[in-house]
Simulated assay, not measured.
Amino acid sequence: MGMEDDFLKDDLDAEKTIEYIKSYLPQELKGKFSDDEFYYFLDLIDEFYSESGILDVAPDEDGCVEIDLGKVVDFIVEEAHKDGIDDYDPEEILFIVQGELEYAESLGDDE
């Protein structure tokens, strides 16, 4: 049952992240993206972090790791194009990436 619990926890975490991002988006972008697109974006953000080596970088003295949001956005836009999903506007995707990062940082504030 442990693996099933992990999947349920991951789904719940993704749902919370998506809800946070939706509330973070500017009014003109609210409702523009489907939940499936948000799940896709989250998967690509995770993939970028895994493949870029950012997860292996030692934090600075403040406990922070510098993340180039432009590179994350470019990765999402390029992968979505390659996958035939859509040609997304990088400026719109930047809000999603920022929202995901803000959510992750808010979790750290609770600890």
Rank of each mutant, 00 (worst) to 15 (best):
D68L: 07
V65P: 07
H81M: 12
D68Q: 09
V65M: 08
E78L: 15
H81W: 04
G84C: 05
D89L: 12
E79Y: 00
A58W: 00
D89C: 14
E79H: 09
D83I: 03
Y88P: 13
V65W: 00
D83P: 04
D87Y: 02
V72D: 07
D74R: 08
E61H: 03
D89K: 12
V72L: 10
I67A: 06
E61T: 14
D62C: 12
V72M: 06
V73Y: 01
G63M: 08
D87E: 14
P59G: 07
I85T: 11
E66G: 05
D86C: 03
C64K: 15
F75V: 05
G63L: 05
K71L: 10
G70R: 07
V77E: 13
G63C: 03
V72Q: 11
L69F: 00
G84W: 03
D62K: 13
F75A: 13
K82T: 09
D86W: 00
G63Y: 01
A80D: 07
Y88N: 14
V73C: 08
I76F: 05
V73G: 06
V72T: 11
I67Q: 08
P59K: 01
V77W: 05
D86T: 09
D87R: 05
G84A: 11
E79W: 01
Y88M: 15
D87H: 09
G84K: 08
A80Q: 04
V72C: 04
L69I: 02
D62E: 14
D87M: 04
C64T: 12
D68E: 12
G84H: 03
A80C: 13
